[in-house]
Each structure stands twice: as C-alpha cells, then as structure tokens.
Design a protein around this nucleic acid. Structure first.
Lengths: 141, 141
DNA sequence: TTATTTGCAAACGGTTTGCCGATTA
DNA sequence: TAATCGGCAAACCGTTTGCAAATAA
C-alpha cells in the first residue's frame, strides 16, 4: 500500500495529466519537504503547485483533490471548518496542539479495536472513523 | 450539569433576550421533539425558530449559536463540511449511518481512557476530543 | 439611559461550475 | 479521433458584518 499517488491513479483508472502529476507530487512531498506534521490546505497546495507550474489554476487543484478523494487516494479533513485539508489515505488519527496548531499523527490498535466493538454493539459494521485529540503540551519534566 | 440552556446563560453572564430564549428552547427540544438522533443544522434551526417567531432573522440564529458555543454551552459539529450543526455540550461521540445519515450518540469509558493515554504518550494533556464512527447497519439476524 | 442586540441586506471566502479551447489515451 | 480535462471568470452557498433602529439591564 506504499504505492505512489501516480501508481494508485493507474490502478484505479484515473487519467494522469501533467497537472495531476504535479499536484500528486506536491502532496506526496508535503510531508518530507516541510516537516512531519505538514497538512497544507487547498490554498497552500495551490501556492506550492504554482511554483512548479504557474499556469495551473486553483479550480484544477480543487477538481484534482476531489477526484483523488473519490478514488480513495486522499482523505479530506476539516480540522477547522472553512478550509479543507487533504492527505494521503493511510488511516491514522490526529493529535492537535490547540496552542500551536501542530499536528501529530498516531495509530492505536486498542482504540481501533474498541471502535469496532462499539459499532457492533449498535448493530453496525464499522466502515470508517475519525478521531481527533486536542491537547496542550505538558511542561517538560 | 443538567441545567437548561437558559440557566447556563445566567451562570455564564450571557444576556437573555427573547430571541435567544426561543433559540435555546428549540435546541433543547430538538431531541425529544424530533427523535433521538436529531441534529439540526443552522438552517433547520432557523426554520423551527421561525415557526415560533417569524421575525427572527437567520443572522440572529448564527450569532446566537456562536455565542452559546463560545460560552461552552453548545458544541459545533461539521459531520459533512458545508453545514455546521450545534448541540448541547455533553461530551458524547457519534456513530453515523453512512446510508441513512442517522446519528447515534454513545460514550465509551474505555476509549476515553485510551485517548488520554495516547495524549500522555506524546507529552500532551488531553483537553478535548472528537470521535466519529461511520458504519452501515447489519442485516438483522 | 447606555450598552447591547437585532434585522436587513450586502459582503465574504471557500468551493463549484459553464463554457470552450487544449490535451490524453 | 473521441472523450476528457483545464483555465478563466462567474456563480454558489454557508456564514459574517456594517448600519441604524429596537431592546435589555
């Protein structure tokens, strides 16, 4: 499952254009290039894309991230309503520092298991979930 | 903590106007009156409020729910981006039926405990959290 | 009375869309 | 070549805001 976005597009029949390749590249690199907890919103994505090809319009960025989302390649987040953020769909949760806005990604199997259990309890099969923790950093020591 | 919204306003120094009383009433009654998993969005709130006093504007509804939220009386949800929903702040989670849109509220102490543990693990004190499960109803039997 | 609130309508900001020329498979 | 895509600018829609009249304390 560690395919590139491009590979995922191919396997899902999403046509690859120059613009989409560039947008995919920017999203893939957003982590390594800008730090661990980089979660650019669409506008920021557009800024970064523009540096590679200034002719790409923001409409294309919107259309592309939506397309990737519908293909299950990206997931959309609305941490703060108003501006959506997209990231590669690899099913982790977020711990958000309410002071600094820093975002830490984590996975916890136990919580995962309990979620499934809760859904079952109400007669549901768990299909998806969203968990966001909001916290403040503890004083060191 | 089972004060009415009006009582909470008083204790938090939020001035009570006729309009706010009506909006508070509609929110308080939204559960009992329309079924267990009623989560009206602002527009729907406005519709219901209008039936009581048609002169109340949607701007007032927006201003009021925001005011109540800032006072910690309500919490805001963005289940589907685009339309915010508000409900009384009593700290439960949501299980959402992705077929019907039905919303079930639940609390799970174990998950709660694990969340705190995860935050601690990263050096944070948990202040708030959001957990949404998305599922499909199982076939009966 | 004085600060606050409300209604109205216009503005705002993120997102979507219609049109038509450009590009992909 | 046929179908799809992208750029542009206008439209959209939920939400916010400036203003002047109305109201709470």
């Amino acid at each position: 499952m560690s395919d590139t976005i491009e590979q995922k597009c191919l396997s899902k029949g999403v046509k690859l254009t120059e613009q989409r390749k560039i947008i995919a590249k920017v999203i893939s690199e957003s982590k390594e290039a800008y730090g661990k907890s980089d979660h650019p919103d669409v506008d920021e994505l557009y800024n970064r894309v523009s540096k590679i090809d200034p002719k790409i319009s923001i409409a294309t960025v919107y259309r592309t991230v939506k397309l990737f989302e519908e293909a299950g390649i990206l997931v959309k987040h609305d941490f703060k309503a108003g501006k959506a953020r997209y990231e590669i769909n690899d099913d982790h949760n977020h711990l958000i520092d309410i002071k600094t806005g820093e975002i830490i990604e984590f996975v916890d199997q136990e919580i995962e298991k309990l979620q499934k259990k809760v859904a079952e309890k109400y007669g549901y099969t768990l299909v998806d979930h969203k968990l966001e923790l909001y916290g403040v950093k503890k004083k060191p020591q």
